[in-house]
Amino acid sequence: MERILVVGVTGAGKSTLAQALSSQLGLPYLEMDALYFNGPGWAVNSELTEDVSRLTAGPRWIVDSLGYPEVRDLLWDRADTVIWLDYPRRVIMPRVLRRSVRRTVTREVLFGGNRETWTGWLSREHPAWWAWSQHGPRRREIERRVRDPRFAPLDTLRFGRPDDTTAWLASV
């Protein structure tokens, strides 16, 4: 485990696990959303592919994302391990809702200086809506990739319950 992708749907705990593993294994942690959103108004990094290519050219790293479409294949080609947090909606949705309410109420500064807002809750791009609508499609995309012979050399760890993930992390 030197080049790790932590994948799952929004709210699964990808960033939390990636940060913990980064500390535990001494791997550089790359926060994909921070690389993707780089300015006010949720501006997208026009140099995302170049940045991700440069950052993942090294021998050791951990990324908390399936990968945005522009860099998804690049990440999956370079990774040696995929850790899949494959949690059901009943686990994901309370997490996303709590996190988004907290971020909205506290006006927490996020990627590129952006914040979640009350009006943002009406957008299909809001994390709560995104987590609900993308749960099935994301799971299918990850399933397809872990079965794809192109990515067969990847070691894949799939966790269906947070307690299983916690137990595994304690054993690393």
Rank of each mutant, 00 (worst) to 15 (best):
M1V: 11
E2F: 09
R3T: 06
L5M: 09
V6A: 04
V6R: 12
V9I: 11
V9P: 11
A12Y: 07
G13M: 08
K14P: 04
S15K: 03
L17D: 02
L17Q: 00
Q19M: 07
L21D: 01
S23K: 13
G26T: 04
G26A: 05
L27I: 11
D33C: 09
A34M: 03
A34H: 10
Y36M: 09
P40A: 15
P40I: 02
P40V: 03
G41W: 00
W42Y: 06
A43K: 05
V44R: 03
E47W: 06
T49K: 01
T49F: 07
T49A: 10
S53M: 03
S53Q: 12
S53V: 01
S53A: 14
R54W: 02
T56A: 02
A57G: 05
A57Q: 06
G58H: 01
R60P: 06
W61T: 02
V63S: 05
V63I: 14
D64R: 00
D64S: 07
Y68V: 15
Y68F: 15
P69C: 10
E70Y: 11
V71A: 03
R72N: 11
D73W: 03
L74Q: 08
D77A: 12
R78E: 02
R78W: 05
R78Y: 12
A79T: 09
D80G: 10
T81R: 03
I83P: 02
I83Q: 00
I83A: 02
W84L: 01
D86C: 14
Y87E: 04
P88H: 03
R89Q: 13
R89Y: 12
R90K: 07
I92S: 08
I92W: 00
M93C: 12
M93Y: 09
P94A: 09
R95Y: 08
R98E: 10
R99S: 14
T104F: 00
V105C: 01
V105S: 00
R107F: 02
R107G: 04
V109Y: 00
L110F: 14
F111I: 11
G112N: 03
G112A: 12
R115S: 01
R115V: 08
R115Q: 05
E116C: 01
W121P: 12
L122W: 10
L122I: 08
L122E: 09
R124A: 15
P127D: 03
W129L: 14
W130D: 06
A131Q: 04
A131C: 05
W132V: 12
Q134F: 15
Q134R: 10
H135D: 06
H135R: 00
H135C: 00
G136Q: 09
G136V: 13
P137D: 04
R139A: 14
R140W: 04
R140G: 08
E141D: 11
E143K: 11
R145V: 04
V146W: 13
V146P: 05
V146N: 05
R147F: 09
R147S: 15
R147Q: 09
D148R: 12
P149S: 03
P149M: 04
P149N: 01
A152I: 07
P153N: 09
L154E: 06
T156W: 01
T156Q: 02
L157T: 14
F159S: 13
F159H: 12
R161Y: 09
R161T: 13
D164S: 05
D164L: 13
A167V: 13
L169N: 06
A170Y: 05
A170Q: 02
V172L: 10
